[in-house]
């Protein structure tokens, strides 16, 4: 990984491309946790890639590339979020989705609907991306205490939501199995 970062810092396009693609799933989850739709998420990732390419020479420590990348992404997401909030009359087309969504996809949707953006992002960064609380505080420019507090609140709300909705998730699975049997 460090080698790719070193080469990317010398503006090696191939190395940079490989690096970005490796982190795209992480960027996607973090951006979607804020923006909730794929179109804005794609825009945020696009802007992030351009900013990174321009500024990668300023990255001091190679091993903090991911932290640095996600921080830039969050800023672009916040920008898009603010712009979108100003254009509330804009019509958003419904997300295209697969008819045969898996359980994880269903849970992902539940997660997006159940929590506010500020709780979603700390949850994704901590549980999914594995950042430490201190790193999350740096990425989001908030105190470590605030990060811990938001994580606790997110868990609490999700626990209640998940426990309440688990029966419906179970029923969903049962329906899938029933469908398979019929076919």
């Amino acid at each position: 990984m460090d080698i790719l970062v070193r080469k990317a810092k010398k503006h090696d396009k191939e190395a940079f491309g490989q690096l970005i693609k490796m982190y795209t799933p992480s960027m996607y989850k973090a951006a979607k946790a804020i923006l909730k739709n794929d179109e804005d998420t794609a825009d945020a990732i696009q802007e992030t890639v351009l900013t990174c390419w321009e500024k990668i020479g300023t990255l001091k420590k190679d091993k903090y590339f991911k932290t640095w990348l996600i921080r830039i992404l969050i800023n672009h997401c916040n920008q898009i979020y603010r712009e979108r909030s100003r254009n509330i009359s804009e019509v958003r087309l419904p997300e295209e989705g697969s008819m045969e969504e898996n359980f994880a996809a269903v849970e992902w949707k539940e997660f997006l609907q159940c929590l506010d953006e500020k709780y979603r992002i700390v949850t994704i960064l901590y549980y999914v991306e594995g950042f430490k609380i201190r790193e999350i505080a740096q990425i989001l420019d908030i105190s470590e205490k605030t990060v811990s507090g938001r994580l606790a609140t997110a868990r609490d709300r999700m626990e209640k939501q998940y426990m309440r909705e688990k029966p419906s998730a179970v029923i969903y699975q049962m329906n899938l199995k029933r469908k398979e049997m019929l076919l």
């Binding site: 795209t24 799933p25 989850k29 179109e39 295209e96 359980f103 994880a104 997660f111 549980y127």
Partner: peptide, 14 residues
């Protein structure tokens, strides 16, 4: 969260 994390699917348009 583990399940969400293990799902690495990024939509085609992205």
């Amino acid at each position: 969260m583990d399940r969400i994390g293990s799902n690495n699917e990024v939509p085609e348009r992205v």
